[in-house]
Amino acid sequence: MGKSYRLYKIERKIIPYLFLTPNLLIFGIFVIIPALYGVIYSFTNFDGLSKMDFIGLKNYINILHDHLFWQSFLRTTIYAIVVVPLIYIGALGTALLLTQKIAFRGIFRAIIYWPTMVSFIVVGLIWKWIFGDSFGVLNYLIELMGYKPIPWLSNGFNANMTVVIASLWSRIGFYMVIFIAALESIPATYYEAAEIDGASSVQRFFKITLPLLKPTSLLIIILSLIDAFKAFPLILALTGGGPGRDTTYVVQHIYEFAFTKTKMGYASAMSIILFFVIAILTWLQFKAARGGEIS
């Protein structure tokens, strides 16, 4: 008996890891190990081919003075500041609407969720066909109505706006689904009790719904913020980072250094900085929201 119990305990210890192994292997080979290499590269002048000398913190010191990097960082931050609240409001709003008892609710949910299944490159191309200065559907319609076409992509401000719109379209559905799940898990009894106490619908939203959504809200803000800082394929397909550098966000900037200018070491150092910025932002949010616990 004692022997089989010991065996049982060993099994209990080992089996979970055995099941985790396949995923761990894939994650390790394709994420962890390259990431560690990235850290090593960031201290070298690796050119992606042959040359690799250890140069200490030189890359990091150079980045401090690299105003193009900080410019693209600032642009990314502004983009994140604009796009994260809009995604939050948009996703929560559609989730609230689509948890009501309305006709064709399932179809609407599907329609709003659908864009999240489309790859970012395709999303970018779709919106390029809509906003394109010369071949875009929108300008075609505007011209049909007898107005002057609008330089959607050749004007820096407009180009950033189209990026925001495309991002919203492609991401809201995903976060909406999370909100719907959270909303539907709030017990109806709370609302009934509040209604009996005479709370208005606005009060019910702010006193019951929003506080109970706190863990979900935290999750969504963190996820969408990370998403925003990593934005790249959609923008590459939609604006190519242009006009000029007006929509060149930080990941594209890093990509250019790594693969066009073949400064792999320098690009790795920039990625490490981006990693720390995202990590710190996430940690701050986590602290500020006390891990999403409901007070």
Binding site: F135, L153, S154, N155, P243
Partner: peptide, 19 residues
């Protein structure tokens, strides 16, 4: 044309369109 250098349009397509 501004459409190419500022608007990111594909010049091959623009020329092929005959415009």
């Amino acid at each position: 044309a501004k459409a190419v250098w500022l608007g990111g349009e594909n010049p091959n397509n623009l020329f092929r369109s005959g415009t």
